[in-house]
Simulated assay, not measured.
Amino acid sequence: MATCIDSSRSVMAGLNVDPMPMYADPTIYDFVGYSRSFSHANNEERDELWVKMREEARKDVEQEPVLASYYIAAILAHDSLESALATHLGYRLATTSLPGSSLAAVFMTVLLEDRAIGAKVRADLKAIKERDPACASYVQVMLNFKGFLAIQSHRVAHRLWTMGRVPLALVIQNRVSEVFAVDIHPGAQVGKGVLLDHATGTVIGETAVIGDDVSILHNVTLGGTGKANGDRHPKLGNGVLVGAGTHVLGNIKIGAGAKIGAGSIVLKEVPESSTAVGNPARLLCGRDKPIKLTSMPGFTMDRTSFLTQWSDYVI
């Protein structure tokens, strides 16, 4: 055991120079050279989040030396968050006939071409760290939170979809479904600062739209009713919270700041800043459970108008 620990510590010491030639299995690092090309092409200011993640990785390896090789391959051998993410996703989604290096190259190329994705990746990392009490560090999100990884894979697949590279986008969707148990159609539109908590069983349809700062728990479906074609999936506004086991079906709008209780089935629109629960979902209202509609700027609907418009939801 002492030999193992000493060896791992020597690896960490070597990181100050260049760990790859001395310690890395070349088959793992087929793609790491792209990291440096990305860094050289990036004229932006110092990436403080990436610096923080590397610090977290070093501390983890100091605590658990057995993780040294894994953390080098996933984090410490890279010069950018984009390179680390592309490589990690590539090898996580790889198959015997679809090598990790090939997938990683696809991911990295898309991230190089569309820098807006990188900004959304960082917003997602920060959102998870802020909103998930189980989140220990940014690096743990990057390596172990499959909801985060599924969303980032989708961002690349969506970019490929919009470019007309449909077969590749669908292959990535399928691999994400198999590996992470999350099925997001590449046509779906997803904003930034999104949290898929636990994520197992999440299904998001082709024409779904998810706004910024949305939180979705596990086993949630944003699907169609089976009675419509074309634009047939839900539209979630900014700041929406969808509880576990919920099914939101049809081309309906869930207003900004709305909350959907766990286990609900939502078939009608939900206004902003309100809460819907149950099967079928109804809005919480009444003398003992007043509807709070004044928290959203510019929203002025009074209670009478609200009850008239949304009478089908009243408990």
Results as ranks from 00 to 15, higher is better:
A134W: 07
H154F: 05
D231L: 10
F180C: 09
M301D: 11
M301E: 15
G243H: 05
R9L: 11
V203P: 01
A123D: 14
V106P: 00
T96A: 14
A77K: 10
V194R: 01
K259S: 10
P186N: 07
K253H: 11
K235H: 12
G224T: 08
Q189L: 08
G243A: 08
A281M: 06
S7R: 15
L307S: 10
P280D: 06
R46T: 12
G211F: 03
I315M: 10
W310I: 06
V166L: 13
Q189S: 10
M20A: 11
I184S: 00
V51E: 14
W50V: 04
L89N: 01
L67P: 05
A127I: 06
S37A: 12
A123S: 15
R115L: 10
N238G: 05
V171N: 06
V209D: 01
D30E: 13
L76D: 05
A86Y: 05
I260W: 04
A208N: 02
T3L: 13
Q173A: 06
L93W: 02
I117K: 07
M12G: 04
G118C: 09
Y34C: 03
L143T: 12
V314E: 13
G100W: 05
E64P: 00
P65I: 11
L103I: 05
D25N: 15
Q309I: 03
R9V: 05
Y71K: 09
A258H: 07
Q152W: 04
